[in-house]
């Protein structure tokens, strides 16, 4: 199926070879002319097929809400709280238990935050008992390890703008870009390599990725079908190139480039890639890359 698809894309194989098995060769002059034309293609015109992998690091942090989202969510949560059905206290808590005291204290806080300080009527409890409750709840929270400092959402790599780190820009999709020498000049492109005879496209993609980026990473190529094709303008007397793109995910490890053919690498967001790659390359890949 796949090889048939590739053949169709390339469109250079002789018509006779694509004929369905059980059909008769028609002897009309038109078809013999066709055969005569299609036998002709020279070896040098045979297109070159290569595969490229768009290696993706998925977001590792949840998206920070925009100011609009913050306001919207808070408004909706308030309506939800106001219209929610009453909570069955006695089903979940033993009367007078510490967990119930904690829940009541926290619930008062949440009500206050949602509906304003004047919403709740003042409780008439013994101040001594209230202080004791509060101390007990605080002790419970300490035992359960609450209040520990959370890791910052901004990584060190964000501050130093270290484009080689996989920890940078945790909220965005990152893609691997390589700095390679092509036709005597340095260009930024995705990991890429040629197709050997007998290889299937998706197998070739995995091989070429390892060949350029080292084997010290865990990757997964998504599916067996290419997700895009790039046909650069060929130089005169050169065969046409077809670069088939595959999507991949990096699960663990890091890229190691040899420094000879591939000089450098970077993990970049969509916008950053747009600044680095050529215009016609960008037109092909921009819709494949994720905006978020």
């Amino acid at each position: 199926m796949l090889s048939r698809h590739v053949l169709k894309q390339v469109g250079s194989c002789p018509r006779a070879a694509r004929r369905a098995f059980a059909t008769e060769v028609s002897s009309s002059p038109a078809s013999s002319e066709n055969v005569a034309q299609s036998v002709r293609p020279k070896k040098s015109e045979k297109p070159r097929i290569s595969t490229a992998v768009i290696l993706n690091r998925s977001p590792i942090l949840t998206k920070a809400p925009t100011p609009f989202e913050t306001a919207f969510y808070s408004y909706q949560a308030r309506i939800r709280r106001a219209l929610s059905n009453p909570f069955p206290h006695d089903f979940y808590f033993k009367q007078g238990s510490l967990l119930q005291t904690r829940f009541n204290l926290e619930e008062r806080q949440r009500e206050k935050r949602a509906f304003g300080p004047s919403f709740l009527p003042t409780e008439d409890v013994d101040p001594e008992k209230a202080a004791a409750d509060k101390a007990a709840v605080e002790q419970l929270a300490q035992q359960e390890g609450e209040g520990e400092e959370l890791t910052s959402r901004t990584h060190k790599a964000d501050l130093t703008n270290d484009v080689k780190s996989l920890d940078r820009k945790g909220q965005r999709n990152l893609y691997l870009l390589l700095l390679a020498e092509e036709n005597g000049k340095d260009v930024w492109r995705f990991p890429q390599g040629g197709l050997e005879k007998g290889d299937l496209l998706h197998q070739a993609a995995q091989k070429d990725l390892f060949a350029e980026c080292g084997e010290q990473m865990d990757t997964w190529i998504v599916g067996r079908n290419p997700i895009g094709v790039y046909k650069p303008k060929p130089a005169s007397n050169e065969p046409q190139d077809h670069v088939f793109f595959f999507k991949g995910h990096i699960m663990a490890g890091q890229v190691h480039v040899d420094g000879q053919r591939v000089k450098d690498f970077a993990w970049l967001t969509k916008e950053e890639i747009g600044e680095k790659v050529d215009k016609d390359y960008w037109e092909v890949v921009s819709d494949i890359l994720s905006d978020c």
């Binding site: 977001p59 949840t62 998206k63 919207f72 969510y73 909706q76 949560a77 309506i79 978020c292």
Partner: peptide, 15 residues
């Protein structure tokens, strides 16, 4: 009421 909080798995689906 519409959505009232951000949703991790839904984001994961879309990204």
């Amino acid at each position: 009421t519409r959505e009232f909080a951000p949703n991790r798995l839904k984001d994961h689906y879309h990204t």
